[in-house]
Design a protein around this nucleic acid. Structure first.
Lengths: 340, 340
DNA sequence: CTGAAAGCGCTTACAG
DNA sequence: CTGAAAGCGCTTACAG
């Protein structure tokens, strides 16, 4: 019988045990000052009815709920890795996790979804929230930690060192002899996108290679956005010998476009991504990328949030995590023939 | 300013707009019967204060919340794939998703966690829930769909055709000439584990190969549980030439143990898993496995739940999804030398 | 068209 | 040690 009647409430328990709901509440929450015999009666009533207190009702009344929230937009490989880190950090912590995902992907409310969901949860349900890659600034009445905040945000946050990571990626290409290096950028309002572009510019500048604006495509981190951009870059007579994409999702699309156009990777074109999502290791060839340890992003964010909620946080409120270049099969020395 | 004071409530809006909370509620929920000028006033107050209604308070009062729940224990690759399917099924559906994960992995309450969380959510917060791989029977006062139910459960559910999948896997090994085929079982209370073992027995029986109880190890789907079992099997003088593990997580551990013991896979030992988690394609050698399309499990479960909630479900309440054998690098013909 | 009042299921001072 | 009552932030008949 999966669908019973109405749920069992605290009043049902109180009635059966012959006590008030106040007393039931005390027993359920293990408060002192209830006689052993009353406890036994209430426990037996709870058992007989299969009662569980309503999370909603309890959190409406209480100040602390011992539930932490995580607000995310879409659910992608990126998010999955982050969640593993968050869960591991919360193991045995006494906090449960509620993840709120909105299904309204392309609906009217897409802008500002994070703020809306955050507010709806944080007033009551949760003691604090992690917000994953919001599109704008966010605020709440309880502590929050943002993974990948927007530029110049003062909110507590955890971010990968995107500048260093991108610099290393482009230096790797320069080291292979590439000089015409295309770049596919991410959503420019995000700090991550901005820093990755900065890294690209910085590495080129330090190598004395002028930035050619024609070699920069404006994507938005959505993999599909990279398709026309990659095509445009690769159809140029002076096409780049390498492309650095600001995310693996977009880099994988560059791989597809190159294949479509009959270009060999890494023979005719080197490709570097950013993120190290699981799919990048499965690509053919395997994608050279910058690992930003999304697991650790999630782990650190949860760790900080926990301490922020309990008022024990001592460390800096903005954490920068190191990245690591993973050289795999999609990059190779530039061919002598195509060298300018 | 990330941490403001107390959250903005409906009373704050009502006060500023000079109306009652009843009226604010009507505007927020788009109910008919409010004058245009009042709507404008309320809207402007909402905007000025940055008000969002509390999910908790609203769902406590309402019957429908337009939020679906998903209850899961740990957060693993398995879960991530399921979630992608769930989210895709819910896109533009008008339902949001709340995922509840408990952090109390090895705590006192581990048994029955699904039922407890389910009850706490389903009375009030959600219109219905998906429960992923519960360890026992579950029930709720609102519709539920179980992914991977326990044996003989009558609850609406979505399951992979574990029997057929396991049969095919073992037939594949038999076809390669293997006769001594070890099996590492999963948590026996789960229908999935039971069916996979049945498939193992069935394939052997049909090939006229007697089942050797000494070749069956009793794991519990936890990858670690496979380590001593694999070791015991492989240390036998008459060790099996192939091992079929009831999950990829366990199969990957078999790979590790074999490597430790200096056995070559697939030269000395063939290994087959079940699930097709992303990691299995990254293993060395890549793992031959049975794909149970966890994405589709999630997709179908969400699809059914949605229709169950709105009362529109017409199909069967127990869905069996096909599986597919993926032959990769971890299986090979049995060596002449080791053939009995 | 609008408001006062009751109530969703709990928890928490306050009395006793 | 226990209960009556208020109240968390909303929504919904019910009046007017």
């Amino acid at each position: 019988m999966a669908e019973g009647g109405s749920p069992v409430t605290m009043s049902d328990v109180a009635r059966l045990a012959g006590v008030s709901t106040a007393t039931v509440s005390r027993v359920v929450n293990g408060r002192y000052g209830v006689s052993a015999s009353t406890i036994a009666q209430v426990r037996s009533a709870i058992e007989r009815l299969g009662y569980e207190s309503s999370l909603v009702a309890a959190s409406l009344r209480r100040t602390r709920t011992n539930v932490l929230g995580l607000v995310t937009h879409r659910f992608q490989s990126y998010t999955a890795e982050v969640l593993k880190g968050v869960m591991d950090a919360l193991t045995q912590s006494g906090f449960d996790l509620i993840i709120y995902a909105n299904s309204d992907v392309y609906g009217t409310y897409s802008e500002g979804w994070e703020q809306r969901h955050l507010t709806r949860l944080s007033g009551t349900l949760t003691d604090g929230c992690i917000v994953v890659t919001p599109w704008g600034e966010v605020r709440a009445s309880t502590p929050i930690v943002v993974i990948d905040p927007v530029r110049d945000s003062a909110v507590p946050s955890v971010t990968a060192d995107n500048l260093a990571g991108a610099t290393t990626a482009v230096e790797h290409l320069l080291g292979l002899g590439h000089r015409r290096i295309g770049f596919i950028a991410g959503r420019s309002s995000l700090a991550a996108a901005w820093s990755r572009e900065e890294g690209y510019r910085k590495a080129l500048a330090e190598a004395g290679v002028p930035v050619d604006p024609a070699l920069i495509g404006r994507g938005d981190f959505n993999p599909e956005s990279a398709v026309p951009l990659a095509r445009a870059l690769l159809e140029r007579p002076d096409r780049p010998t390498a492309i650095f994409a600001a995310s693996d999702g977009m880099a994988l699309k560059v791989l597809e476009v190159a294949k479509e156009m009959g270009l060999d990777v890494p023979g005719d074109l080197s490709v570097v991504g950013f993120d190290n999502i699981p799919e990048s290791a499965l690509a053919e060839p395997r994608l050279t990328t910058v690992d930003q340890s999304m697991y650790r992003l999630g782990y650190e964010a949860a760790h900080m949030l926990k301490a922020l909620v309990t008022g024990e946080w001592e460390g800096p409120r903005q954490i920068l995590l190191p990245t690591r270049l993973l050289v795999r099969g999609s990059t190779a020395p530039v061919r002598a023939a195509t060298r300018p």
